[in-house]
Design a protein around this nucleic acid. Structure first.
Lengths: 256, 256
DNA sequence: CCCAATTTGTTCGTATGTATA
DNA sequence: TTATACATACGAACAAATTGG
């Protein structure tokens, strides 16, 4: 008889990947459970003893796997409560991807304003970043972010339509939290990492108008490729930052 | 009788810091040994069983401590060889602090040219970053970095003279490796982390001349505060980047 | 080329402490 | 208070990489 619903975790088969340590198999199993939706973001994992038993491994080996996922901020452990799949609503997660700070060092959540939402075709630059072919259908989103009531960031997002099937301007506009939280809850896409390339340019007419500066004003241009759990690119974003009163901050930490 | 030379590691005293886990005490002991020079960079630590015995802790607890230091790139483990104190000569370490890349994504080691070396007084901006009082004696260094034969970066370094006693232009000019390697080998200062604040500005006359661009050209200005093992700031650096053919790259990784 | 010694890597198991509900 | 869950600490055995003879 087939089980009523498939269990979230099954006994690991060490023969799967020859030579791979058990704890890495466990890590992959956890990632697969999250990615497939069997363990959605916010959900608590089974407790360590139960999970280790289900996977057929020792508790120490399981902890090794979980340790790595916690370091990557994919899981979150809280003593006495449990181990949870991280969500993009926690402050730490939000600021992992928002690197703009007031010059005095204070952090502030931006007010986001949707400027445009339309469908189009992938251009060469974004195709290269996303690892797709130019011409594929995409969704193009423009946002303006204000800090202390003043426009500071102008974002242009390129999203592969295939990954965001069903995304509408209404859903985007009415999202209760961050845009990455919407990716996560609405489309099963968890952004866990991003690469950014930064350069200084003179503001073009469009950016100047949107940011309320004179064309040619030096501004930061940040080109971001955001990666999901499976390390596949899911978003390409070009941000233009007015850095007269704010900075782009970065910590040169060992993880780099 | 006093021992001929003090041993690098002594038995931990759990009473030291009440409530602190043993593995954190072990970590502090390791850091202290590195900082004091009893375990200089490049040196192998005693093997795990010996070290655990010397510290009076189990091997698992020692590994927990070493795990964290490895994650912070302060130690480096190699199976079959040993555990080593990291040096600023390894490629990974070098590029942890050099974030300039060609636009095509290729990395290249820069050619460094010393432009000036002089002594002076700490100004307000650097004093704030270094956590010192303005007016303290400092060493001011100017460097120009070229990539593919073209000037790309103009660095102005501020170093507290008290930390770099005995630093001369000659020593700086004749260093065999990176400047952080010189800090480490010459002054016992290991830079392990840095904060950077980036903004776009128009090149001033000085920067324009040094980088060979027209004044007013949009350039990146990066203000870095470098921290040593003890988390104390040891260098303040303002870099000006010409980003027409290169980018400032950043990975939004979980450690941030 | 192989062997032996050394060192870290992986896996197992157990006991006890601490935070949370 | 009690039960639950993660955190810390201990110990042991074997695997895998490295080195030198």
């Amino acid at each position: 008889m087939a089980p009523m619903s498939e269990p979230a975790f099954e006994r690991l088969d060490p023969g799967q990947a020859a030579g791979a340590p058990l704890y890495r198999l466990a890590k992959q199993a956890l990632l697969a459970a999250i990615e497939s939706g069997r363990c959605p973001p916010g959900r608590a994992l089974p407790n360590e003893t139960a999970l280790a038993a289900a996977l057929g491994i020792s508790i120490g080996t399981l902890r090794h796997a979980v340790d790595e996922l916690v370091a990557e901020r994919i899981l979150l452990r809280r003593q006495g409560r449990g181990t949870f799949v991280a969500t993009h609503t926690t402050d730490r997660f939000v600021f992992q991807f928002f690197h703009v700070e007031r010059s005095d060092g204070r952090r502030e959540a931006p007010q986001v304003e949707l400027l445009s939402f339309e469908r189009g075709r992938l251009d060469e630059e974004a195709a290269d970043a996303l690892g797709l072919r130019a011409g594929e259908p995409v969704i193009l989103v423009e946002n303006r972010l204000a800090l202390q009531g003043r426009p500071v960031v102008y974002d242009r997002l390129t999203l592969p339509a295939a990954l965001f099937r069903g995304l509408t301007e209404k859903r985007l506009r009415e999202r209760p939290s961050t845009i990455y939280h919407l990716y996560q809850t609405g489309f099963g896409i968890t952004v866990v990492r991003a690469h950014e390339r930064v350069r200084a340019v003179g503001a073009d007419r469009t950016a100047a108008r949107i940011l309320g500066v004179v064309p040619g004003t030096p501004v930061l241009q940040v080109r971001r490729t955001a990666l999901a759990l499976n390390d596949k690119p899911v978003e390409y974003r070009v941000s233009t930052l007015w850095t007269a009163q704010h900075d782009y901050v970065s910590t040169l930490s060992p993880a780099t």
